[in-house]
Computed example of a mutant assay.
Amino acid sequence: MPETVPSRGLDPLGFIEREGTHARVPHLFRPVVAAARDRLLDAFGARLDSAYLYGSIPRGTARPGHSDLDLVAVLREEPADADRDAARALGEAVDKEFPQIDGVGTLLYSRARVLSEVERYDIGWFVACQCTPLLGEDLAEFLPRYRLDSLLARETNGDLARLLPRWRERIAAAGDTEEALRPLVRFMSRHLVRTGFTLVMPRWNGWTSDLREMAEAFAGYYPERAGQLRRAAESGYEPVGDRAVLRSYVDDLGPWLAAEYARMHGVKAPRPEGWD
């Protein structure tokens, strides 16, 4: 079993420390962040409650030409289709303007959802611990501090069984080109690695967002599946558009991981309709 490192990603009291700061944003990516901030204000105006960065850019690990820009926009009301269209247009414009990034993703939530009881250990935790404030009021001030326990594991990634049928539909609908399959491989690889990590997170007693480190933590508890998760971690960073990889995720690794997750932590609480 791996040696636990209580201080990894945790403060002296054992709470998860917030990832990322503006000081860690690499110089090359600072114009990207500035442009995204301006475009968020232009796109949502007074409807924008707050906005955040997350991912490799605020952690200081972004790779020019490979890393994407990850944003969260929290609106004062529930996002509508027009808001999702605006977020896509924002992402396309910033991606086109800055060659140092490989895509832009913007998550949209309402303030009420982020602060809701049902999302406290999922989206609330995500905003409080993994997101770096960019605009507006920091909603972490209204959320608790978080420990590495089974409740957090269940509510963050305990819904894989529900997601797998949707993944199969997305794979079936995708074209056979590298351009069509590569984003799916990257997305599903990252999701499975993170799920594998949070499966063992309470036992490992530490937090990391590095996919390779996540896979190694998992390997200490499930050596028979270690190779699969290590390969998924590599695909999360350097994806190749291979339909066989996607099939292995939804036919083998994914179902096993969903079943083991339910056995260890239970199933994520249901969300209100429209909150998927």
Rank of each mutant, 00 (worst) to 15 (best):
T156F: 02
T156G: 03
N157R: 15
N157K: 13
N157P: 05
N157Y: 13
G158M: 03
G158K: 08
G158A: 13
G158D: 11
G158Y: 06
D159H: 12
D159A: 14
D159M: 13
L160K: 11
L160P: 07
L160E: 02
L160N: 07
L160M: 09
L160H: 07
A161G: 10
A161Q: 13
A161P: 04
A161D: 14
A161E: 11
A161V: 09
A161N: 05
R162V: 14
R162L: 15
R162K: 14
R162A: 15
R162E: 15
R162N: 14
R162H: 11
L163H: 13
L163G: 06
L164Q: 02
L164G: 04
L164F: 10
L164T: 03
L164Y: 05
P165N: 05
P165W: 08
P165E: 06
R166Y: 11
R166W: 04
R166I: 05
R166V: 07
R166H: 13
W167H: 06
W167N: 02
W167V: 04
W167I: 01
W167T: 01
W167P: 00
R168F: 05
R168Y: 08
R168H: 03
R168Q: 08
E169H: 05
E169N: 04
E169R: 03
R170I: 00
R170K: 12
R170D: 06
R170C: 03
I171M: 01
I171C: 01
I171W: 01
I171P: 00
A172K: 10
A172I: 06
A173Y: 03
A173V: 01
A173H: 08
A173N: 11
A173P: 03
A173K: 11
A174F: 06
A174G: 05
A174V: 09
G175F: 12
G175N: 11
G175S: 07
G175I: 14
D176N: 14
D176M: 10
D176L: 04
D176T: 10
T177I: 08
T177S: 15
T177P: 12
T177H: 10
T177W: 09
E178H: 15
E178W: 13
E178M: 09
E178G: 13
E178P: 02
E179N: 05
E179L: 15
E179A: 12
A180I: 13
L181G: 04
L181Q: 09
L181W: 05
L181K: 05
R182K: 15
R182L: 14
R182V: 14
P183T: 01
P183C: 01
P183D: 00
P183E: 00
P183H: 02
P183S: 01
L184V: 02
L184Q: 01
V185M: 02
V185R: 01
V185G: 00
V185W: 00
V185E: 01
V185S: 02
V185P: 00
V185A: 01
R186T: 09
R186G: 08
R186K: 15
R186M: 09
R186S: 06
F187M: 07
F187R: 06
F187V: 06
